[in-house]
Simulated scan of single mutants.
Amino acid sequence: MSETLNPVVVAVDIDGVLRLPPLDRGAGELSRAGVYEATVRVFREDYPVAFHDPAGDWSDAGAIGDIACYSAAGAAWLQRLVADPRVIVCWATTWQGYANTYFAPVLGIPPLEVGVNTRPRLTESA
């Protein structure tokens, strides 16, 4: 008798997990740390304002370019997970569907389902 296994679900965040705080850009420091840099051009009309402050140095075209560090090990791990038919991978990030627009290409993965609530952050009332 064969046993049917349920798929494993892995929910992935971006900031602080795959996209890292800036590191020293000295010669070879990034590659030695297992980190690579990529520029992501974010557009104001495609920015998750429900969860992120849209403050920044926006161009006249309504875009901002962000050079960020990414975990090479995290990207490779994510690529392996996405390729595994026993695993369902989804975003668990406040970037929501914008993670597919801005970060999936940088991480070398196809678009993923989004598994976060779309409610904006809570605010205190007076």
Rank of each mutant, 00 (worst) to 15 (best):
R19A: 13
V40P: 05
D60T: 07
A33Y: 05
G62M: 05
L20P: 04
V116W: 00
P111H: 10
C90P: 03
A11R: 15
P120E: 01
V106C: 06
P48F: 09
V17Q: 00
A75V: 11
R86P: 02
P22Y: 04
E113T: 12
R25L: 05
V12N: 00
F43W: 11
P54H: 02
G26C: 02
Y36D: 11
L122A: 12
A27G: 00
E113M: 15
W77L: 10
L122C: 00
W91T: 08
A104N: 10
A61H: 14
V42W: 02
V40W: 05
E3A: 11
D57M: 04
E113A: 14
Y47I: 09
P7C: 07
A75K: 09
R80W: 03
Y102M: 01
S71T: 14
V17N: 09
Y102G: 03
Y36A: 07
A38D: 12
R41F: 02
E37T: 15
P120I: 03
V35C: 10
A68C: 12
D60K: 10
L107D: 04
A99W: 03
D53I: 04
I14P: 04
C90W: 02
Q96R: 14
R80S: 15
G62S: 01
G28A: 14
L107A: 08
V10F: 01
L20T: 04
G74H: 06
W58M: 12
D13M: 06
G97T: 07
Q79M: 09
V8L: 15
A50M: 10
A61K: 15
A33Q: 13
E124T: 14
T93C: 01
G26V: 02
I67T: 14
N6H: 13
R80Q: 14
V49E: 12
I109T: 01
W91C: 07
A75H: 11
P22N: 00
W91L: 09
R19I: 06
E124C: 06
R119A: 13
G108C: 08
W58T: 01
A27C: 01
P22L: 09
L20D: 08
E113C: 08
R119D: 11
V8W: 05
W95S: 04
D24C: 12
D84R: 08
V87D: 05
A61C: 02
G16H: 03
G16Y: 02
P22T: 00
D84H: 02
D15W: 04
